[in-house]
């Protein structure tokens, strides 16, 4: 996966809580056997009407946020299914960072495996971000900060192991192969039990 550290962008404010994976990527788009090409289906039924025309007041159709790489939403983002098609569609659309007060566990993990940085800020901080009209921020993973264009700095926590994985863009499977002797030893122990 692509390493991630500094991201500067206007934020895309999606002022909703409990955004579920069925909304992020609807089931009719899960039949592809590739990891790519899902961006055009991101939030499909919120983005387009029954005739495939863009729905004007949906935030992804707002010209002011065009090219944005940072999505901001409310609590429990990514709840529901384990489909990795959700982060694939977010990444393929162009987002590298998702900011919310909380994330569903599987979605959060799936982001980490795809070079998407999920940032947890407090409810008040997220509400402050969502209340801004057009707001540019600078995310720094190394420093664990989100800095607004007006100089306001928000700090965030992240597991040090996951931070290292994201900063380096490491392939986790290659890393795990270094523990082959441990895995083998475990299997031998179980076989003897």
């Amino acid at each position: 996966m692509e390493p991630i550290n500094e991201i500067n962008s206007v934020i895309t404010p999606l002022n909703q809580k409990n955004v579920d994976t069925d909304q992020i990527i609807s089931k009719e788009f899960l039949k592809r056997i590739e990891r790519t090409g899902f961006g055009k289906y991101l939030f499909y039924h919120w983005r387009f009407d029954a005739n495939g025309e863009p729905i004007k007041n949906f935030v992804l159709n707002d010209e002011r946020y065009k090219g944005s790489t940072i999505l901001v939403a409310h609590d429990n983002f990514g709840c529901g299914s384990s489909r990795e098609h959700a982060p694939w569609s977010i990444l393929d659309y162009g987002f590298r960072v998702v900011i919310a007060p909380s994330f569903a566990d599987i979605f959060y993990n799936n982001c980490m495996k795809n070079g998407i940085l999920p940032i947890k800020l407090s409810v008040d901080e997220v509400e402050a971000l969502l209340s801004k009209e057009v707001y540019t921020v600078s995310v720094n993973l190394e420093a664990q900060t989100v800095t607004g264009a007006d100089g306001v700095v928000y700090s965030f926590d992240i597991d040090p192991y996951q931070k290292k994985m994201l900063l380096n863009g490491w392939d986790e499977i290659s890393l795990t192969f270094q523990y082959e002797d441990k895995i083998k030893a475990y299997e031998e122990k179980v076989a003897q039990a």
């Binding site: 489909r83 495996k113 597991d159």
Partner: peptide, 20 residues
Amino acid sequence: FGIGTSEVEHVLSTQTLWQA
């Protein structure tokens, strides 16, 4: 528990997962 496709690949390759 449910896992994403990257973790499916990880389990297929190593029969393990890194889990907090």
